[in-house]
């Protein structure tokens, strides 16, 4: 996967890592969760993430989209090492962090932060906002110039909250404001990359737009790299330059915003886009692709191409040979034997 890096960013980045290296590199990442059916049942594995590769450059926004159970959240949690990968390799700034222990992880976590989906359960209700936002600083023993309180108030201001609300508790804030608190906490250590796991899906439409705009401003201002995990394709299109589409533990297509949304190569990407109800499609119900059935179980995924059981283009080859992720005529990289050709409509 090649990516254009803005020269300025590249120059800034070379100070800390070898030139030409992406900020984050994921190779053959796998996570299997063991499950047992019944007391004496055979041990099986949920193949939540089953061998994925991608890179993220400094300041780049990578979107990871897919339906529930495709492994996007598991991937995000492995990136920040909240889950231990079964196999594969995660390289951050040229260092292999796949199996780093807790104490060596700590400095790494300063560079890599996560924002969670649910602004209600991800903030400790017994702590004041000041304490929540200051927590990353105190855990890492960082004493910012001018004191912790000043830094926290600065952060609250950056995310659009009143710095005087320092002493309030999470329950005194609305959902959107709580998500801002989560963002302030993630920014406290001046990270280089943020993994955002469905950061706006629990919010009302009008509040969602506020938080998306905030994240976009912060991304530009601090040149943050983002791994933006979401199921909402329109939100991802709005936020991300590059998008990876996941299905059943695998990446099926990676491409630029333009490639994914205007000329997708993988039939699954096409079907996903077609399923999104969009106000601009009012009255035009023709030409929609309807996928049959549900996503198969990740305990026993289909042979060959995993999407073949729901794909209208599937042939014998699809059951026998797993398609590799290859460059396709439309420009993106996709795993399909019979890719789509030409623009979406």
């Amino acid at each position: 996967m090649t990516n254009l890096v803005v020269p300025q960013q590249a120059a800034a980045a070379t100070r800390t890592r070898p030139p030409g290296e992406p900020l984050l590199k994921v190779e053959g990442l796998v996570k299997h969760f063991p499950v047992r059916s019944g007391l004496f049942g055979a041990k099986q594995h949920v193949r939540a993430v089953d061998g994925i590769d991608f890179t993220v450059d400094p300041g780049e926004t990578l979107g990871v989209v897919g339906e529930s159970g495709c492994g996007k959240t598991t991937t995000g949690r492995m990136l920040v090492r909240l889950l231990e990968p079964t196999s594969g390799k995660i390289t951050f700034e040229g260092r292999d962090i796949t199996h780093m222990n807790r104490s060596s992880l700590r400095p790494l976590r300063q560079d890599m932060q996560i924002i969670f989906q649910d602004p209600y359960s991800s903030l400790n209700p017994r702590h004041t906002v000041g304490r929540i936002v200051a927590m990353p600083l105190s855990v890492n023993g960082i004493e910012p110039a001018g004191g912790v309180k000043k830094r926290v108030q600065e952060l609250l201001e950056i995310v659009g909250l009143n710095p005087e609300h320092y002493n309030r508790y999470p329950h005194e804030f609305s959902g959107g404001q709580r998500q801002r608190i989560g963002v302030a906490r993630a920014l406290a250590l001046k990270p280089k990359m943020i993994v955002a796991d469905e950061p706006v899906s629990a919010l009302d439409v009008s509040i969602q737009a506020q938080v998306i705009n905030l994240l976009r401003d912060l991304q530009r201002e601090f040149n943050l790299a983002f791994v933006f995990i979401a199921h909402d394709l329109a939100v991802v299109r709005h936020f991300c330059e590059r998008i990876a589409v996941m299905y059943l533990g695998k990446i099926v297509e990676v491409g630029s915003r333009q490639q994914i949304y205007e000329q997708p190569s993988h039939p699954y990407t096409k079907a996903l886009l077609s399923a999104v109800p969009d106000v601009t499609k009012l009255g035009a119900s023709l030409g929609r692709i309807r996928l049959e059935g549900d996503v198969p179980t990740p305990i026993n995924p289909p042979s060959g191409c995993r999407f073949r059981t729901r794909c209208w283009k599937a042939q014998d080859l699809c059951a026998q040979v797993e398609p590799p992720l290859d460059p396709k005529p439309n420009g993106s990289i996709a795993a399909c034997h019979f890719p789509e050709v030409g623009p979406l409509r």
Partner: peptide, 22 residues
């Protein structure tokens, strides 16, 4: 509401226009 919802069409770099407040 209409201006807050990101779309699959149009200019993705244009900022959304959220409704202020709660």
């Amino acid at each position: 509401l209409l201006a807050s919802v990101p779309s699959l069409h149009g200019d993705a770099d244009e900022d959304l226009k959220p409704i202020k407040g709660n």
